[in-house]
Design a binder for these strands. Structure first.
Lengths: 106, 106
DNA sequence: TGGTTATTTGGCAAAATAGCCAAGCGATTA
DNA sequence: TAATCGCTTGGCTATTTTGCCAAATAACCA
C-alpha cells in the first residue's frame, strides 16, 4: 500500500472514530431531529458540560455537525446526515450477534 | 436517558469502534473483494503479523468478519457487507471538508 | 457595573488502544 | 521425529481517549 492510500484510510478512520462513542452517537441521533443547544444535549446525559462540549468538538472537527452561536447559546446541527445510515447497519450486526448467541444456548 | 438506551448506544459504539482504524478499514475494503488469508492481508501492511491478527480479532469480535481455518491457513471473510456503505458517507464528508478548506484559502 | 447563564479551554489522572516481541500451538514438510 | 509455516496469545510500553475540575470568555440581566 502506498503512502497516498494509507493517508486516505487514515482520513476515513478519523471520521469514523468521531462516531465511535456512545454519547456522540446519541447526540447524532438527537440532532437528526433538528438543531439543539448544548444545554439541551447536556440534559440528556449524566456528564459534565465540559465533557459534552468536548464530544461536540470532536463531531464538529470531523465535519459531522456544525455549530452556530445565537445569543448566549450555541446550537449544533447535523451537516452529514448520511452518518445516520450507520445505525441500520450496526443494528443488523447486533441482531445477528444476538441470534448467534441464542443458538449457542439452545 | 435510561439504562437500556445507554446500553444500546454502547453496543452500537462497540461495532463502529471496530471500524475506526485505518488498517481495519483497509482489511474490510479488501475482504469486500473476497476471502483472504492472514498472510495475504499481512502483505498489504507494514506491521507485525501479531498486530494484523489482533486487528482481525477486533473485527471478528464485532461481528463484521468471520474466520475459517483450512489447512494451515485462516481465511477471513466479510459477514456484514453493509459496513461498506460507511465509505461513501465518509468520502462525502471528506470532500466537503476539502472544499471548505479550499474556500478558506481563496 | 456586578452577577448570572451558557459554553469552551487547559490541565490532569484514569482507562482504553496500538504495536512490538517472545512464546505457544496446530498443520505441513523434510 | 524434527524443523518449518501460519497464526494467535501474553505481556509490555507508548500513545490516545475520556472525563472531571477549575478557570476563562461571552452574552444577558439586575
Amino acid at each position: 500500500m502506498d503512502e497516498k492510500a494509507r493517508a486516505r484510510y487514515e482520513a476515513r478512520a478519523r471520521i469514523i472514530k468521531a462516531m465511535a462513542h456512545p454519547t456522540r452517537l446519541l447526540f447524532v441521533d438527537e440532532l437528526a431531529k433538528g438543531e439543539r443547544c448544548v444545554c439541551e444535549l447536556n440534559e440528556m446525559v449524566h456528564a459534565d458540560v465540559s465533557t459534552i462540549s468536548k464530544h461536540l468538538a470532536v463531531l464538529k472537527n470531523a465535519g459531522i455537525v456544525q455549530d452556530e452561536k445565537r445569543g448566549s447559546r450555541v446550537f449544533y446541527s447535523l451537516v452529514a446526515p448520511c452518518v445516520l445510515n450507520f445505525f441500520s447497519c450496526v443494528e443488523g450486526v447486533l441482531e445477528a450477534q444476538a441470534k448467534e448467541r441464542a443458538e449457542l444456548v439452545s
